[in-house]
Deep mutational scan, measured.
Amino acid sequence: MQRVNMIMAESPGLITICLLGYLLSAECTVFLDHENANKILNRPKRYNSGKLEEFVQGNLERECMEEKCSFEEAREVFENTERTTEFWKQYVDGDQCESNPCLNGGSCKDDINSYECWCPFGFEGKNCELDVTCNIKNGRCEQFCKNSADNKVVCSCTEGYRLAENQKSCEPAVPFPCGRVSVSQTSKLTRAETVFPDVDYVNSTEAETILDNITQSTQSFNDFTRVVGGEDAKPGQFPWQVVLNGKVDAFCGGSIVNEKWIVTAAHCVETGVKITVVAGEHNIEETEHTEQKRNVIRIIPHHNYNAAINKYNHDIALLELDEPLVLNSYVTPICIADKEYTNIFLKFGSGYVSGWGRVFHKGRSALVLQYLRVPLVDRATCLRSTKFTIYNNMFCAGFHEGGRDSCQGDSGGPHVTEVEGTSFLTGIISWGEECAMKGKYGIYTKVSRYVNWIKEKTKLT
């Protein structure tokens, strides 16, 4: 034993070699072989497995989906700052455009905790909710729209109204504003409101030439003092309507412009014939205590009207009353817009006519005020429907199939267009061939041609 100890002390290297040989010859039971080890760690190889990531292109799944990435790591994937920024906006807080917040056709661009709407022409605001041009839906104005110097929408209202708090709607500024039905039992019968379409306001006024200088022999019209197929109006439903009495009662109609003036057809009036105007009328054979009678003290036909040349060209006249009318729910003026808007309103496509005229061709006159909704007829169809001249200051309205029309005794009465609950004068009943005849239409004086003249002559002093 002493000898062994001496050998170990003198030859430590020998001992180490012996131990190493023993270990190498022993069977290893701690580690699995290569094949079995792979069965336990069965993990798919990654895209760049075996390579240094710093030297390969980034992978979106590896960089940002398996674990949260930084902007720089995302930049490695896209290799483009702009594309990385677009991805980053949604990656950080989701897609803010998912709810489609942009209105009126706006395009949404996502941002971090926010979004941006790219608005089409005519709109602005956070969600493109603000109209900035009158060309689109009248700028959301209830009545009139004008573009300011910086191309912003400025709404306005006709006389007797003021802008509401929203700067879009119009509200009454006087007790009985024009064009409004205020009798409670008839307010439910107000005709369907007309909503502004998209309009090209630059070209809204037709490029028409008034044929002022045409000389033409007097034409022989049949029954051209021209509501057939209409309905009984309720008291106060058309408070701007008046009836004219002269040699015979209810020979023509008219509309209240203001307390002192009536507008009617020029062919209705004769110099030297006494005319009485009755406002607030409903049943011409009954006294309903809503009527107001006034005498006409002055007749002003349009300066281009000449019955000797043509009885229905420039067929418009103004009547001055001896005493002002007292405005109330049964006696209310009709609204008159400017030339541009009167023309736009007419193009809405349908209007209402009213009167006490004959209820059928050569038949009896109506006792109760009649009204009828009539569609506008395109000019080409209008011209083809008659052998008589249709001037540019006239328009056609009615039904091709016949059966409904204005008729004798309705002449001078109103053709009105309702705009968001307020009625505007767009025409004056003038003439036609018979009444409600198939293929024939009622012919009306186009008020847009005469609004400046009306307003100039009827100013209240």
Rank of each mutant, 00 (worst) to 15 (best):
R3V: 13
M6P: 05
A9C: 15
E10P: 13
P12L: 15
I15P: 04
I17G: 02
C18T: 07
C18A: 11
L23N: 02
L23Q: 02
L24S: 04
L24H: 03
A26Q: 02
A26Y: 06
E27G: 10
T29P: 02
L32I: 12
D33P: 04
K39T: 09
L41E: 11
N42F: 06
R43G: 15
P44W: 08
R46G: 13
G50Q: 13
E54K: 08
F55V: 15
V56L: 08
N59T: 12
R62W: 09
K68G: 10
C69N: 05
S70P: 09
E73R: 06
R75N: 15
T81P: 12
R83V: 11
T84Y: 04
T85Q: 10
W88D: 12
Y91E: 15
Y91H: 15
D93Q: 10
S99W: 05
N100P: 01
G106M: 00
S107D: 09
C108Q: 01
I112Q: 14
S114V: 04
E116M: 03
P120F: 03
F121I: 04
F123Y: 10
G125H: 01
K126C: 03
N127F: 06
L130E: 12
L130H: 13
D131R: 06
K146V: 07
S148G: 07
D150S: 12
K152E: 10
V153A: 09
V154R: 10
S156E: 11
C157F: 00
T158Q: 11
Y161S: 01
L163N: 03
L163Y: 01
E165Y: 09
Q167E: 07
K168R: 11
K168A: 10
C170L: 00
E171L: 12
A173M: 13
P175A: 13
F176A: 04
V181I: 11
S182A: 11
S184R: 09
Q185V: 14
T186A: 14
K188T: 05
K188G: 11
L189V: 13
R191E: 14
E193M: 14
E193W: 10
T194R: 10
V195M: 12
V195A: 15
P197G: 10
P197C: 05
D198L: 07
D200H: 05
S204T: 10
S204Y: 12
S204I: 05
D212W: 09
I214A: 14
T215M: 05
T218I: 09
Q219E: 09
T225H: 10
T225A: 08
R226E: 15
V227N: 09
V228M: 06
G229D: 13
G229Y: 13
E231R: 13
A233Q: 06
A233S: 09
Q241W: 07
V243G: 04
L244S: 01
A250K: 07
F251V: 05
G253M: 15
G253N: 02
G254D: 00
V263Q: 01
H267D: 03
V269G: 04
E270Q: 14
T271N: 14
V273H: 15
T276L: 05
V278H: 05
G280C: 01
E286M: 11
T287Q: 13
H289F: 12
T290Q: 10
K293N: 06
R294M: 02
R298P: 00
R298C: 03
H303R: 07
N304C: 10
N306S: 04
N306V: 07
I309A: 12
K311P: 11
Y312K: 06
D315P: 01
L319P: 00
D322E: 11
P324D: 04
L325Y: 03
V326D: 12
L327D: 01
N328H: 02
C335I: 00
A337H: 00
E340W: 11
Y341N: 15
T342S: 13
N343S: 14
F348P: 02
F348D: 08
S350D: 08
Y352T: 07
V353I: 15
V353P: 01
G357T: 15
R358M: 07
V359S: 14
K362M: 09
G363Q: 11
L367M: 05
Y371R: 13
R373I: 05
P375Q: 11
V377R: 05
D378C: 03
L383F: 15
T386K: 08
K387W: 04
I390Y: 14
N393E: 07
A397C: 03
G398Q: 05
S406W: 15
G409E: 06
G412A: 13
G412F: 07
T417R: 01
V419S: 05
E420P: 01
G421E: 05
G421L: 03
T422W: 01
T422Q: 03
F424C: 01
T426K: 00
I428A: 00
W431K: 13
E433V: 06
E433L: 05
G439M: 04
Y441W: 04
I443H: 04
I443G: 02
Y444E: 00
T445F: 03
K446H: 04
K446D: 07
S448Q: 05
Y450R: 01
N452V: 05
W453L: 00
I454V: 06
K455L: 07
